[in-house]
Design a protein around this nucleic acid. Structure first.
Lengths: 146, 146
DNA sequence: GGATTCAGTCAGATTCTCTGACTATTATCG
DNA sequence: CGATAATAGTCAGAGAATCTGACTGAATCC
C-alpha cells in the first residue's frame, strides 16, 4: 500500500475531497438536500456581484454547456438567478438568490469549522505555511486567478 | 472576484487539478489515448502487487459498481488484468498489466516533472513545508490511509 | 451447520459531460 | 460606415460516469 510515496498532488486531493464532502454533507443536512456535488462546484465560484456563465465554466473547468446545464438546475431549485449583464447585452450574470445565500452561509460556516480542525491538528505555524505555499503555488497553477 | 479569500481546500483543488491535467495530457500524448480521467483515477490506486476492487472503490471514493465498470474498460484496453486473490476465493486482485506499466511510467515521470516545477517556484524550504503539512493533514483526512 | 457478513456482478436509471451547430451581440479594421 | 471576425450563450444529441437495488458465491461466526 502506498504510504509516503504519494505525490503532493494526490495528497492535496485527499484533503480537498474531505473538505468538499464535509461541506456538502452539512449543507444537505441543513435541509438543502436537492443540491449535488457538481452543482456545488459551480455555485461556489459565483462572486458577490454575480459571475458570467463562461467565467464559471472556465473556473470550474467544464464547458459552457455543462455549466449552463448545472446553472439551469440551480436556477430551477431557486439557488441562483440569471440577470442581464448591463455591460454586455450578449452576456448574463449568474447571481446568488436568497435561498442560495442561505445555503452558502451554511457552507461558509462549515469551511471555517474544517479549517479550524486542520489548524488544531497542524498547529498555527504549519497551517500558515500550508496556506502560504498553496497561495504561491496558485500563481503557476491557476490560469484564471485574478 | 475571490482572490485571497479562497479557502485552503479550494487552493489545494486548483493545484491538484493542474497536476492531474498535466499527467493525463502527457499519458495521452504518449499514445495511450484511450484512457479517460475516471479510469486514471482508479488506475493510480492500484498497488504493486495488485489491489482488490472494493479497496480501489473505497480509495477512489466511488461505489464498487462504478469501480468495476472502470476496471472493465481498463481491462479491455489492456492496462490491467484481474487475477484470483489467493487469500480469498471471493475476491479478485486488479493488477497492472504490461501496457499499464508503460503508461504508468510516463505518468510517474510527469508527476516528477510537475513537482520539480513547483519546487523551483516555491523554493526548497516552502516545498518541504508543503509536503510536511499535507502529510500530517492526511492523518485526519484520509480514512483509508495505512 | 445454519445465519450472517463480505466480494463482486448484473440490471436499470440518473446525472454529468462533451462535440457540434446555431443566434445574437460586440469588436475590429479597412 | 460596413463587412468580417470574435464572443456569450443556447439547443440538440450522444457518450461517459455514477448511483440504487437485487443477486450469487465464498468466508466467518456462533
Amino acid at each position: 500500500m502506498p504510504q509516503d510515496d504519494l505525490n503532493v498532488g494526490l495528497l492535496m486531493f485527499i484533503a480537498y475531497r474531505e473538505m468538499e464532502r464535509r461541506v456538502l454533507d452539512a449543507v444537505v443536512a441543513a435541509g438543502f438536500d436537492d443540491i449535488t456535488l457538481a452543482q456545488a462546484r459551480v455555485f461556489q465560484r459565483i462572486g458577490p456581484d454575480g459571475t458570467r456563465l463562461g467565467e464559471l465554466a472556465e473556473q470550474a473547468q467544464v464547458t459552457k454547456q455543462t455549466a449552463g446545464f448545472l446553472v439551469d438546475q440551480l436556477e430551477r431549485a431557486g439557488y441562483v438567478e440569471r440577470v442581464a449583464d448591463p455591460a454586455d447585452a450578449r452576456a448574463k450574470l449568474v447571481r446568488i438568490a436568497e435561498k442560495g445565500r442561505a445555503a452558502g452561509s451554511i457552507a461558509g460556516r462549515t469551511v471555517a469549522e474544517v479549517e479550524a480542525e486542520w489548524h488544531a491538528h497542524l498547529g498555527r505555524q504549519r497551517m500558515d505555511q500550508l496556506r502560504e505555499a498553496l497561495s504561491r503555488l496558485r500563481e503557476i497553477t491557476d490560469r484564471y486567478a485574478r
